[in-house]
Design a protein around this nucleic acid. Structure first.
Lengths: 117, 117
DNA sequence: CAGTCTAGATCGGAATCCGATATAAAGATT
DNA sequence: AATCTTTATATCGGATTCCGATCTAGACTG
């Protein structure tokens, strides 16, 4: 476990979803909300309170930064966000962490008889 | 997405960890706490408040049930819990859901240039 | 017996999420 | 131009969840 990223783990569900929405490209706030809903097939929908609350915290922690506008003819109200390098590392670490645990859980689910402690 | 399980998703982190701790075998409360800490390399530690709060809710929802004692010479204070069939299905569905999203996120992380929305 | 560990459980406070709400610009339609 | 709808940022009170101190007490060890 990397000392660099472990202080940020475990991520809250909302933070995880936001980082994942930004994994592929920079997005503005409203687009993040839409992407989270899309990625999760509607299972996870962030309201504006949750989004901006979490964005603020992620900005403060340096996992996310504001990024430049897409272009000069882009909607001028939009504020774009991107993952920092740290944010990418933290997201990768959280994914690795959970996937490792899922591996073990799936082994347990594959068994049918409860074994006694 | 199965209509049977989707009403229970997304799971909160604590609920997910508890279900995973019970995936392999029945455990009593204190052992669940220890297993969660072990599975997550100490990244996630449930305090007693979180544990019993969540256990109660999982019991109410039918994802977890109390189970028989391990043996007659087991510590008599212990209360054992097990995953119900529904609990197993919900856990499997949550893992599948997250793994699918991780697949996509990892593709995004693998790219280095931010692409514009 | 005293000390330590195991085990169940509660509860007030802090943190996080929900979602209604507000404001307003941009786009579409009439 | 006026009106309606969608996009976009943001706030905030209330609800929910988590934290962890705390309590009680049994089991084990020396």
């Amino acid at each position: 476990m990397h000392p660099l990223t472990s202080q940020f783990l475990p991520l809250s569900p909302a933070a995880l979803h936001i980082l994942m929405a930004l994994a592929g490209e920079d997005r503005h706030g409203y687009a993040i909300m839409r992407e989270v809903a899309r990625q999760s097939d509607g299972q996870c929908r962030l309201g504006p309170g949750t989004l901006y609350d979490n964005l603020k915290r992620l900005l403060d922690k340096g996992l996310v930064a504001e990024s430049a506008k897409a272009s000069d003819d882009d909607d001028p109200r939009r504020r774009y966000y991107r993952l920092t390098n740290l944010g990418r590392q933290v997201l990768a670490a959280e994914i690795a962490r959970l996937e490792e645990m899922f591996r073990e859980a799936k082994l347990g689910l594959a068994g049918t008889k409860p074994r006694r402690a």
